[in-house]
Design a protein around this nucleic acid. Sequence first.
DNA 1: GTTATTGCAAATGATTTGCACAAGG
DNA 2: CCTTGTGCAAATCATTTGCAATAAC
Lengths: 165, 165
Amino acid sequence: MDSAIQARLDDFIRRKGLRRTSQRDVIAKAIFSKDEHFTAEELFDRVRKTDSDTSRATVYRTLGLLVEADLLREIDLGDNQTTYDPNFLDKPSHNHLVCIDCGKVVEFEDSHLDVLNDCVTRRLGFKPIRQSIKIEANCEQLRLKGRCPNLIATRLTGKRLRKKR
Amino acid sequence: MDSAIQARLDDFIRRKGLRRTSQRDVIAKAIFSKDEHFTAEELFDRVRKTDSDTSRATVYRTLGLLVEADLLREIDLGDNQTTYDPNFLDKPSHNHLVCIDCGKVVEFEDSHLDVLNDCVTRRLGFKPIRQSIKIEANCEQLRLKGRCPNLIATRLTGKRLRKKR
DNA sequence: GTTATTGCAAATGATTTGCACAAGG
DNA sequence: CCTTGTGCAAATCATTTGCAATAAC
């Protein structure tokens, strides 16, 4: 994990009068050693594999902490659980495209979108704080080539495909 | 309720080999007599007040039906429940601005955003299906005048303010 | 030593579902 | 009639919480 992130976390913990614990370290490391999106449950599995006996409750609590510290952002991908995105530190205003066919999530940035969002918001008499754009789309790979490598992987694991419960 | 909507619903029901029931009529009327966003629970209350003894389960099931018929759209306003928006028939590509201070939701349309979304999606090699832009913002009313009429109403009812559960 | 943190299991809250009965076509 | 729809209560599922035990500082 980037030491800059560790520093920001330490800082946040100190300013809040909280405590640095082994569980929090383990969780933060598990998160920021990748740039993948994840759900609480996925993170819990990852943490469990790595080492400790950190509990599910602590994972949830730490996630809340990291979101508050703005090291992590909650995003909504349309399944019914919160997805966490660790990439806002590097790309502060990216957005998400979700493939309806295979569930793949693509991040993108477009400064034009930012500008327009800003304009719209001010025009309506508000001060913009945060925007989230989610585009749902169909896979061109699938349409053109009749198959999509990601689709197969997704179907195998059952992960991340819209689960209309 | 608009007879065009009734017609579309009838059509959908017939094509699917389903049945027109009094409950479905009551629920559809409750929804489309207003242009307000609502949650399942709010709709259930509304329906209960109007007349029948329609059950919560039927409300949920009918909501699913109407979404499938594309007469209604699910949107995510950041509280932890699905909000339903009946205004996509009139404004097929509007988006939502949510005031962080008072919870007010403002609908807006901006053709530039549509165009850009479309470009971005194609650039990434996908076929755009649906986009949802949610802008979170601060109330200018509150900042400039020190008060916001909507805030007071919201606090009184406790409805629709972000409920970080 | 205090006070924050953790793990556990039980609680929550929105939504879904199984089933026996009721009602469209 | 035959099948779909409904109400009810119980079940789910992600997430939160109360509480006694544990660990930071």
